[in-house]
Design a protein around this nucleic acid. Structure first.
Lengths: 302, 302
DNA sequence: CTCGACTCATGCGAGATTGCATAGCACGTA
DNA sequence: TACGTGCTATGCAATCTCGCATGAGTCGAG
């Protein structure tokens, strides 16, 4: 009796429990959920246990490798997601009336853009004008979820589907063959298919450059890596040639363009800046957004 | 900087804060909100302060008599209500798969029905069959909000608008003139308009009985009260005659029916049992609902 | 004016919650 | 088989939060 009385109170009485439930449901493990929530696994374990106690039923089946929702838990996921959506909307609403350019803005982008464009060119003037901004650059390779508020602004290389996201193309970067100065001298006159290619391969999909290399008949395995930064490091070390935006040669002095005649056209790299419509006009976000757009547009110019 | 970093985390990081915010927004005072939340005023004060700190703006203007949302707070109320709706839906979802007739069921009803019908007739057999039920009888005069989950089942005297509520009429109680045995002897032969009427007046609207009394030309101020219980107590004390369900004479031995010829017909009292559709089939609720329906139907019969 | 009723803010001690460290367990690999 | 890695559950100490009690303030009635 008192257990069930506690039940209703516990659910109504601790809305935060839903956040824990959802994190575990998403991550499939107390430990990973704890990392996501920025807390300890023991806390997650105890709070889920408390929630189960309150509901009188198990939400997750504990396995040695992961936890999985019980059928009961599965029924609640959808409703919990609805709570989260309402919560995120509330958060947007809270930010909507901010007036000062102050506070945290998270930007998701690649290592290359972060190190060679945003850090040296965009941030100094932006922070000078708005010293209360706190910029977080997230260069994780994992796709960050803009819609789920995992970041505020994203720089992407693909067109964004319309919806609650807004954005624009800020640059169409012509690609060229980049190499080191030493290698350039060494490789003068070598046929395209015989160049020591250093290719970037994406872990999950085939990058357009790879298709282009196939088209010109370049062999598969010269040097391949899954990180653009490593790719350029290999190039800087004089180990070969890579397909990359031509303007990288301008921002990285160790690199230069290798001109090779009669090659099929390289598709340009399109750069998009994207954010959520709900926060696009928040001063804090707008300032960063516009600085990014301007900085990346300049990249295209030269 | 760290303040605004804390900001986002605090809102996303403590969903329970919304519950406090909403309670204060509804009640217009930290103290009343604390009573609503079943906690202390100091806790509400501190948690609202923490939330404001996190958001970097004041949510409420503190006045000596009450607090009132700032314009910022007002903007958030709607979004917070959406969170609450999602939360209530989640709760329904959690109860939907209960299988045992066990736990708390709240019933909102009048004092009269609670004392003279539900307590003596409905609950004994119900609790005998389902000993794990925990029934809460709420006899507050204030209208309880079924839709906001303030109660599980309500017994009302008016038809319920369709929507998320379901219910049925369980009795149409013929009304009669009730009085005490002593008064009955004394009042034999007195004309209707000259009887010592004891009227029930609702604080906010005109009860149908009052209109009927006007129709027969009864004077306004004999004895009036705002509680049916008090009204019947006055009748039991031999102070007069009241319009009440005829069957009350059967359940209260001190009362008897005073037959007076040639009176306009009294509108019957219609009794409805109402609950929310989402919990109607939850075993715990269904058991109580059906017991109430049966018990109140029997009231009509005799 | 003075009092009483009511509000919110805050100091303080009890108690609940947290994070760390550990134990126990299952699985895949050498 | 033995080991390493990942997981969850739990004991324990430090910390944080809560509720009580109090103080300061405002409003309205007598």
């Amino acid at each position: 009796m008192s257990r069930d009385l506690a039940a209703t109170r516990a659910l109504l009485g601790d809305w935060d429990a839903v956040r824990y439930f959802l994190a575990v449901a998403r991550e499939g493990s107390f430990s990973r959920a704890a990392r996501l929530l920025g807390t300890d696994q023991s806390t997650v374990s105890r709070r889920i246990a408390a929630l189960e106690e309150a509901l009188g039923r198990k939400l997750f089946e504990r396995g040695p490798r992961a936890v999985v929702h019980s059928s009961f838990g599965a029924q609640l996921v959808e409703a919990a997601l609805a709570v989260e959506r309402a919560m995120l909307a509330l958060q947007d609403r809270a930010h909507a009336s901010e007036v000062r350019v102050s506070g945290r803005v998270r930007v998701a982008l690649t290592e290359g853009l972060a190190q060679h464009v945003v850090a040296p060119r965009v941030l100094p003037p932006l922070l000078a004008r708005h010293p209360e901004l706190a910029i977080e650059l997230h260069t994780s390779d994992a796709a960050v979820d803009l819609a789920r508020h995992e970041t505020d602004i994203a720089i992407r290389f693909f067109r964004t589907p319309r919806g609650e996201l807004v954005g624009q193309r800020v640059a169409r970067l012509e690609r060229a063959l980049l190499t080191s100065h030493a290698a350039k001298r060494r490789l003068r006159g070598v046929a395209a298919r015989d160049l020591p290619w250093i290719a970037y391969v994406h872990p999950s999909f085939v990058a357009p450059e790879r298709a282009w290399l196939d088209a010109i008949g370049a062999p598969r395995a010269t040097l391949e890596c899954t990180s653009v930064e490593t790719q350029l490091a290999l190039v800087r070390a004089g180990l070969g040639v890579a397909v990359a935006p031509r303007s990288y040669a301008a921002v990285m002095p160790e690199l230069c363009v290798l001109e090779v005649a009669e090659l099929p056209p390289l598709p340009p790299l399109e750069v998009y800046v994207v954010t959520r419509a709900a926060i696009r006009r928040v001063p804090r976000v707008a300032a960063v957004y516009e600085a990014l757009v301007a900085g990346l547009r300049a990249l295209e110019a030269g």
